[in-house]
Amino acid sequence: MGIGIQKMNQERKLRDVKPSLVKSFNKYKYYYVLLLPGLIYFIVFKYLPMGGILIAFQDFKVTGGIFSSPWVGLKWFRILFDSPDFWVALKNTILISFYKLVFNFPAPILLALMLNEIVNRVFKRVVQTIVYFPHFLSWVVLGGILFSLFSVDTGILKLFSITTSPLMNPDTFRGFLVGSEMWKEIGWGTVIYLAAMAGINPELYEAAKMDGANRLKLIMHITIPSIMPTIVILLILRTGSILNAGFDQIYIMYNPLVYEVSDVLDTYVYRLGLTMGRYSFASAAGLFQSVVGLLLLLFTNWLVRRMGERGLW
């Protein structure tokens, strides 16, 4: 008797859920239509290409395709890990990504905090436009600008009688990469943090001012704690991509003089894997990057939650 009642309750719940789903879909159908192009993009360009992971375990031939190429197991991973150049590229990738994380991640936070304190709206918008504009330029354009600016023959270095360009010096090239990316992307991060600050309740500031808090205390005890969830989420995502040091930037700027300090995993794979037709080798290196990135993402999210903050999930 009890089992029959339980089944009846379950069937009643299913009947209630079905109309509610249809009602919800009809209510938000235009939002789903707007979502459709983005969904198709991710399916076609992000999820379907995951089938290419199989190439990392095959001796892939273009003429045979994925289904006719012979399986070789972990052969390409052994070749990858036995290559001394791979470890040099991995070291460079970690170092460059670490420098960018340490210096470039806090930069937009500091700039957003300073812009948030500006009362003059016109000046604030002008500064935002100036720092945000480089984000819309490709590294091809910016690379040409930087090469011209820091040329020892025609650039600003000639004014100071400097005979070596930082783009040609292994001792300064990594710092130049970090600084140029900060210049290009600091505006994008600033906009994100300013949007988070716009959602802070103004009454919190008013109450703190009545208690005698100065501007520094308002920033430390209201602004930063309020935008901390945004900071944490962006930090988790940045940590998960630590093996992605920025292929387009480095590929545009590096040269044989700085290979020893600038050859990262992406450029190493492109040069040896794709230009030489070693597609299985390139897939193995790419899969290695993805697995390490996923593990770092999971670890960082776990660590953040252990510290009491809200993670991605």
Rank of each mutant, 00 (worst) to 15 (best):
L110M: 10
L216W: 12
T164I: 04
F147P: 00
T172Y: 13
V141C: 10
N301K: 00
Y193V: 13
W76G: 15
K46Y: 14
W188T: 02
L287R: 03
F133M: 12
L296R: 06
K209W: 10
T129M: 08
T190K: 05
G286L: 13
N104Q: 11
L204T: 10
G38M: 14
S138C: 01
P202Y: 15
I118S: 10
V232A: 07
P108A: 06
M114E: 05
Y41P: 07
L146T: 12
G175P: 09
Y270C: 12
T129V: 11
K7G: 05
F81T: 01
M182Q: 04
L14D: 07
N169D: 14
L110A: 14
K100P: 07
A112N: 03
V152Q: 04
P170M: 02
M253I: 12
T239R: 00
L235G: 04
K100Y: 03
F42I: 15
Q249W: 02
Y193I: 13
K209P: 01
L294I: 06
S68F: 00
L74A: 03
N244Q: 15
L36W: 00
N26S: 10
S20H: 07
L243W: 01
G144C: 07
Y132L: 06
A56P: 02
V22E: 08
Y251K: 10
N201Q: 04
E117K: 14
Y268Q: 02
D171P: 11
S180M: 07
A213K: 13
N120W: 00
D266I: 02
A208N: 02
F42H: 10
P256K: 04
G73S: 13
L142Y: 07
D211T: 08
M1V: 08
